[in-house]
Design a protein around this nucleic acid. Structure first.
Lengths: 205, 205
DNA sequence: ACGTCGCTACACCCTTCGATGTACGGCGGT
DNA sequence: ACCGCCGTACATCGAAGGGTGTAGCGACGT
């Protein structure tokens, strides 16, 4: 029996999804959430095999919720729009799969089974974009990155590798005190509060 | 009518593919190539809509051939192995899609139609890997994850988001001292020295 | 019933981090 | 020539992180 948690802020949509899922003999909806926050809480508590997660939700969006659920449950992102940011954001957040809402009931059930089996899947209509982004190497630097000096970017790269201040200093041939200064500047400019967040930012392209 | 070029060094495989493709009423095999070099030449000359390209071929491998055909035709990589390098290499080379050879005839035809229509697709069995690589690539040993308790994985997920001990504690509803204990255990088990490294590890899946 | 394992919690201690202030030399533009 | 930005460097200090030990509790398997 595949245990599924449904998260969508529209009660009607939720009801529809539940109806479809319960119609499958091997599936069981163990919970419903109307916002991202409670989706995370319920997932942690109920330990479903798969979470059907809407992108647009109150309190906490589906992408962030997915990020928080990394390692807790496999998340299947379900949304109306195939906007790039959603796809990539979802994948970066660790989503197991990504489906558009125009997917028919049969495909939906099949998708849930796939994810539960540990296999990922993506809507064909968005795959092309994924491929384009994947092969089109230059990942487009976020605006904040522009505000960094070259030296600060080098320091950020060190942070992105999980280096300590001493290690960064050594790799750049400067004093640790100087490295610390740069680290502070980088954090301030990027609006981050710790080197760990900088590492996350860095790996998030 | 979808014009297809088949490139595979095994005549038997080529014959099988041609048989399948010609069986579709809307497809036409306009040429066959036994190596990468002639595949490129024929594609340039015959201008097929889709090139079915094997990875392992003499003279020029399928990945390189795909790279040379960027802009000339949509390439559908077809291989026996779902080795990572093939998938990523193919995508970086600009492949429109990627399929394993164990794909049944029906799916193969459907895949060719999809690519011809300008949509990409990827075998579900490799999608998970694609997702992994897309969210981050570096050397992370997923095996070590197994040694973590569920709770520790939750803590690791928190570290992966750049959270502080206090924030992790709050999100899990436990005391900060407890969170610190878990963090220490996670770092020890994964052989890491700081939460920043844990964040890097996490984004590397 | 017992032992093991996982989750929780707290204490102690030392290290690292991050913020802030100050300072000096170089470089480019006005 | 002057000014502003950048990179370098150091000191100080409070906050956060990380190691280690101890311990109670519930679940599970033997």
């Amino acid at each position: 029996m595949i245990r599924v948690l449904v998260a969508d802020d529209h009660a009607a949509v939720r009801a529809g999804l539940v109806l479809i899922l319960e119609g499958a003999p091997d599936m069981e909806v163990v919970g419903e959430a109307g916002d991202g926050r409670s989706a995370v809480e319920m997932a942690v508590r109920l330990r479903p095999d798969v979470v059907l997660m809407d992108v647009r939700m109150p309190l906490l969006d589906g992408i962030s919720a997915t990020r928080e659920l990394a390692g807790v449950a496999d998340v299947l992102i379900l949304t109306t729009f195939d906007v790039d940011e959603y796809v990539f954001g979802a994948l970066r957040a660790g989503a197991a799969g990504f489906l558009l809402k125009n997917t028919d009931a049969e495909s939906l059930v099949a998708a849930v089974r796939l994810v539960a089996r540990g296999e990922g899947l993506i809507s064909p209509s968005v795959t092309r974009k994924l491929i384009a982004a994947f092969s089109g190497a230059p990942p487009a630097d976020p605006a904040a990155l522009e505000s960094l000096t070259p030296r600060e970017r080098e320091v950020l790269a060190g942070l992105g590798r999980g280096l300590s201040n001493a290690e960064i200093a050594r790799s750049l041939g400067i004093a640790e005190a100087t490295a610390k200064t740069h680290v502070s500047r980088v954090l301030a400019k990027l609006g981050l509060r710790s080197r760990a967040q900088a590492a996350v930012y860095w790996s998030g392209l």
